[in-house]
Computed example of a mutant assay.
Amino acid sequence: MKKILLVLNIILLISCNQKEFNKEKENLILKLDEKELIIRDQIVSIEEKKSEIKLLNQELKLLKESFSKIKPKKELYNLYNEVKSSVYLIYTENEKGTSQGSAFVVSKEGMAISNYHVFKNASSAIAINGKGNEFLISEIIEKNEEKDYIIFKLGPLTNSIPFLKISENIPNIGEDVFAVGNPNGLRQTLSKGIISSYRKHLIQTTTEITHGSSGGPLFNDNGEVIGITSSGMGEANLNFAVNINNLNLPKYLEKDKQSFNNRLNERDLIKIMNNYYNKLKNEDMYSLFEIYEKELSRFHGLYSINKSRAIKDHKDYLSKYEISLINILPQSVRTFEGNESYTIQYKMEYNIIRRKNNKPYNYILNTVCVISKEGKIKSIYDDITQKN
């Protein structure tokens, strides 16, 4: 009996210990589960924070890029001093006399812009910068009477010249703008105002535009060109500028930067001109017709004429005068590479005889000719520097 009781006590003790063990085991498992949950939450939190940090870094990068593009606004007097050297006074001559206007340069190679009406019916034109230096109008690139703009080249140039930047965007109505022009010949005069409205291809502004300022630049408050100052009505402060977006400037500016695959050297250009003068002297009109471009941007005192008109002028001239000598002075030759063309400048002896009375005339001419990359004459004009 005693043995049986002992066995039962042992069994009972083992059973109690097993229950405690199981209970401890369950508690341990619960604690492990809790720890696992906590660790999992911490891992998720760390990953979320990593994502947040990544997003914050991206936002910070974008902010830095935005701030780098934001330039502090310059004072008006600083902007004026930066742009004024690219604004020119234009003098033109026609049957009625002389007139004046403004223009501005948009490439270091001398591409310039003005109003069409400044050059309308002009037989000759000259551009003068703020220092009083004179520049010839060597080439008419494009003109539009309806929209009142003209694109041309100054030349020949020995060095690059200051030029203006064209705005990629137009200001909102109410934003500040300013203009630099030559009212009544008063060079590089500053005026300021705001954008009043947009009228088809025109910008309406309170910026004053008076006689002589036509053809000058209208700027945004960063000193970038947004328009070509065109006219002022003098009442209610109504002034207008041609929207610069109407001009296909990128096309011409890109061409201005291009180099030629088929380059002509100075010897080639002199050869072209000697050939031209031989044909002229021999009155070979057919060959002259082949030498000219289809359209001449300038032919002595005429602008934008076709080559048939140039040949007619030659015929009229040669009916009155016989050419006895044309001689290019080699030491005077200068050549320049430009917008899909070359410019050659030189002095030459030019002797003629009036057929009516056999009277001779002897000249020294300063001549400028623009030649296409194909070797055809696009523009030619001269000034008399000496007469005997």
Rank of each mutant, 00 (worst) to 15 (best):
G223D: 07
N278C: 07
S231F: 07
I272N: 06
G227Y: 01
I311V: 14
I272C: 05
L238P: 01
A310Q: 10
N265C: 07
L249Q: 03
K307H: 14
N246I: 13
M233K: 11
L288E: 08
K271V: 07
S230W: 01
R298S: 04
Y252P: 05
G223K: 02
N275W: 07
S259Y: 10
Y276Q: 07
Y276I: 07
N278F: 11
Y277Q: 12
E283G: 01
Y252F: 15
G301P: 10
I228Q: 00
V242P: 00
N248D: 13
F299M: 03
L280E: 07
E293P: 03
Y277F: 15
N246T: 12
E283N: 12
F289Y: 15
L288S: 05
L269N: 01
L302A: 14
S287I: 08
K257S: 13
N248A: 06
N306E: 14
I305Y: 03
Y303G: 03
K257I: 04
K257D: 11
A310T: 07
I228S: 00
N261M: 12
K279R: 09
L247D: 00
A310L: 10
E293C: 08
I228P: 00
K251D: 13
N306I: 07
H300V: 12
N275K: 13
K294H: 13
D268V: 08
F289V: 01
S231M: 11
I244V: 07
S304H: 06
S308D: 15
N265A: 06
I272G: 02
I270N: 04
M233S: 12
I270T: 12
I272P: 02
I244L: 06
N261W: 02
V225L: 05
T229K: 00
N237C: 10
I311F: 06
G232T: 03
F299P: 00
N278L: 15
E293D: 13
S308F: 13
S304D: 14
G223Y: 04
K294Y: 14
N237W: 02
I305L: 10
I270Y: 02
T229E: 05
M273H: 01
N246C: 14
M285C: 05
E254R: 08
L253M: 05
L238K: 04
N282D: 15
N275A: 10
I291S: 14
E295C: 02
I272S: 03
N246Q: 15
E235W: 06
K307D: 11
E290S: 08
A236C: 03
E266H: 06
S308H: 10
S230Y: 01
S259C: 08
R263C: 05
F299Q: 00
L302P: 00
M273D: 00
M285K: 08
N246A: 08
N278G: 07
L288T: 05
